[in-house]
Computed example of a mutant assay.
Amino acid sequence: MRESFVIFAETETPPAPLEWEPHSHPLHELVWARGGTMTTRVGDRIYTVSEGEGLWLPAGQVHAGRLTANVEFHSAFFSRHRTPVAFAAPTVITMVPLLESLLRHLARTDLPSDARERAESVVFDVLQPSGQQLRLQLPGDRRIDPIAETLLNDPSDGRSLDEWAQLLGISERTITRAFRHTTGLSFAQWRRVLRVHHALALLSEGWDVRTTSEMVGYAQPSSFIAAFRTVMGTTPGSLPTTS
């Protein structure tokens, strides 16, 4: 990024799923995807960003991530010292059409300085957090971390609290209290949010609702749709379709 730029944007479309190892940038970064989803892990939180949303990452924030294949991946870098609007923590941003158009415009390197300054000022006016901050808090408690890791790898795992308690040699009450203390959710609520995170990626890859519901552990599509609505406030069928 040139020092004269407050904002510089770029785009790529990887032909295969793209994964990033943990890394950070010296600049603030806003990332978003068109035609799919992006999953980003920041410390003990996982963010799933779908069509129409982006993720703001403060300068120096270590993060890792995954992008589905054949998806337009966009990133915009913001000067650390010349950005009047900045968020201190990772924040889901509403990618309204005007914001996205402006950032695409700012990807040009031949813009006159006055035109660039005008576009940048409007970006700061429309850069707003989303009302839906979809993130999954990981427990970070060694007593229940095996549950979290198992479900992250296989969200369809349907073992009950009793079965997990027997496997781990602890009580159901201990598991319940540990989830509440570390994530603010019950075990059932936490698993539901995790399954919706996975479902968003599957749906964006073109899987239908019935197949997606089975892949994330629901025997009936109606149960999956109800869980999805509880977490997202809408149904899977209302999501933007990809071509």
Rank of each mutant, 00 (worst) to 15 (best):
T11H: 13
E72P: 01
T11Q: 07
F124Q: 08
S50C: 07
V231A: 07
P14T: 07
P84E: 13
I7Q: 00
R159P: 02
L67I: 13
S75K: 12
V92T: 13
L134G: 04
L161Y: 12
E163S: 08
A86E: 14
A89V: 06
M38L: 15
W56K: 00
V92A: 08
L103R: 05
V31K: 11
G54M: 07
A227K: 09
A16I: 10
R80I: 02
S24T: 09
Y47T: 12
P97G: 04
L152R: 03
T183S: 02
D141M: 01
L151G: 01
F228P: 14
D110N: 07
G52E: 06
P17G: 12
P112Y: 09
L151R: 02
A16R: 15
P221M: 07
R82Y: 13
T174N: 14
R82I: 07
A64M: 14
Y218C: 07
S223M: 09
R108E: 10
T150I: 02
A201H: 07
P26A: 12
T83M: 11
G60Y: 08
G36L: 03
H28R: 03
F5R: 11
V209C: 06
T40C: 08
A199Y: 06
D141T: 02
S186Y: 02
D162P: 03
G54W: 09
L55P: 03
P240D: 13
R82P: 09
H181N: 08
F179Y: 03
Q133L: 04
T230H: 15
P112Q: 10
R177M: 10
